[in-house]
Computed example of a mutant assay.
Amino acid sequence: MRLNEIAYDDSVPIDGYGPGFFRIGGEKVEGPVMVSPAGVTTWGGFSDTETIIDQVADLDVVFVGTGAEIAHLPTDFRTICEAAGIGVEPMASPAACRTYNILLSEGRRVAVALIPV
């Protein structure tokens, strides 16, 4: 089996997560967070669509980690994001972290908004 080192270019990978925090680019970040090509920023949860709209430009998709379990996105949240031309994909936060890292390593244009487990 051939193993390759993953190169993330200028983007920041998610190194890990735990109760109430994420480890991103070697730094521990408490609470909800958004990671995009624009950088790492705190996120106010589903009522904070402005952060998502401000941080994303020309992206394929924004993964939304809904915590320990997958949950439906609030209708208002999804409607506002889609009206701004942003595709959002809900999944459990652990799955969102893994999916984000994989697509990021492939050079895809992705972002992730995460609620801690």
Rank of each mutant, 00 (worst) to 15 (best):
A57Q: 14
R108H: 11
P13I: 04
E50T: 11
M1D: 04
L114Y: 00
A68R: 06
G65Y: 03
Y17G: 00
I102V: 14
D10Q: 15
D54H: 14
V29L: 11
G31H: 10
C97K: 01
G87L: 15
I70E: 10
C81L: 15
T51W: 06
A92S: 13
L3C: 09
E69Y: 08
E27S: 12
I14Q: 06
V88R: 02
G85Y: 04
E69I: 06
A57H: 12
F46W: 04
R2W: 04
D9I: 02
A95H: 10
V112F: 01
E89K: 00
I52Y: 00
P13T: 06
D76E: 14
F63N: 00
L3Y: 13
M34L: 15
T66D: 01
G67M: 04
E89W: 04
D76L: 13
I24A: 01
R98M: 11
F63P: 01
G20H: 14
V56C: 14
F63E: 03
I52F: 00
H72P: 10
E30S: 10
I53R: 07
L114W: 01
A111V: 03
E89F: 03
P13S: 08
G87D: 15
R108W: 01
G16I: 11
A57T: 12
E82A: 05
D9L: 08
M34P: 08
A113E: 02
Q55R: 15
L59M: 09
I53A: 10
V33Y: 05
F46S: 01
A96G: 06
G31D: 10
F63D: 03
C81H: 03
M34D: 02
G107F: 03
G44P: 12
T79A: 15
S105Q: 05
F21P: 03
K28A: 12
N4M: 14
V56L: 08
E30W: 14
R108A: 05
H72L: 14
D54P: 01
G45E: 10
A71L: 11
G20E: 13
N4G: 10
Q55H: 11
I70P: 04
I53M: 12
G45H: 03
T41K: 15
L114H: 03
Q55A: 13
A95L: 09
A71H: 14
I80F: 02
A57E: 13
P37F: 07
I52K: 01
S47A: 14
P13N: 12
K28Q: 13
T75L: 15
M34C: 09
H72Y: 08
G44V: 06
G20D: 15
R109V: 01
V56K: 01
A95W: 02
G44N: 06
T99V: 10
R78M: 07
M1Y: 15
V62P: 02
C97D: 04
I115P: 00
M91D: 05
N101W: 02
I14T: 00
